[in-house]
Amino acid sequence: MRWENDPILTVEHLRMRFGGLVAVNDLSFKVGRRDVTALIGPNGAGKTTVFNCITGFYKPNEGMLTLRQTDGDAHLLERLPGHRIAQDARVARTFQNIRLFSGMTVLENLLVAQHNTLMQASGFTLAGLFGLPGFRNAEKAAVEKARHWLEKINLIDRADDPAGDLPYGDQRRLEIARAMCTDPVLLCLDEPAAGLNPRESQELNTLLLSVRNDHDTAVLLIEHDMSVVMQISDHVIVLDYGTKIADGTPEEIRNDPRVIAAYLGVDDEEVEQIEAEVGA
């Protein structure tokens, strides 16, 4: 298995508690480099909590999250402050409820994503204040990169419109493009297909596959839409009540009895049978 041999992200014994509620309990899994990995499970299974731990919005109570770059550098995500995870470990994410800068234009959204590169080029504002050529070139390059992504997501004609004016599906794609503008090695998508119609979710599949193939970025996604999960994932991890109940290729997951039980429930006879076994 690719994710066993060359993982980009290794999650070990992750545990996250909120007061008395254990949202994630002793969870371990690996995300393969150049894989699309899907994290699925019923509502409240702890998927978004795992995401928030990976991207630094929560500090886990226990566990280790190791991110390995291609050159062998390793980052321990649970020890990095939130913005460093995006800046140094190069993990980008999108949100379940879209978080675009709605009052800024589409282009501005993509330039904010390149903040750290541009900040350095602007000599932490001083060189930029006097408009030195180094900064102007960096800005041109940043606009070029934004243009590349806008063409890719078909929004080039709306580059100067406020992001809040875009239709829902376009906002979803723009958020992915914005995350990709940070040059991530791992892109975490929280329900990217939520609220999309079948055609839009087909476009999303194409976009995600191109992210993986053309940009050498691993994709980790939470998704309820099985047409997306089964079509594009290389690896599926199933969570229920904060623990992992299955882990494998989409075909393996499709036929796993525990997954079916978690999603669809179990037959009454089966329950009786187990009750008899335990002697209840």
């Binding site: 919005f57 995870i85 995006a86 949100f95 978080r99 009052g103 800024m104 994503a113 940070t182």
Partner: peptide
């Protein structure tokens, strides 16, 4: 301005 619009999104983009 991005900070004014959405602080959480800023953090996820690596802005200190």
């Amino acid at each position: 301005e991005a900070l004014r619009e959405d602080e959480i999104a800023c953090r996820s983009l690596g802005i200190n």
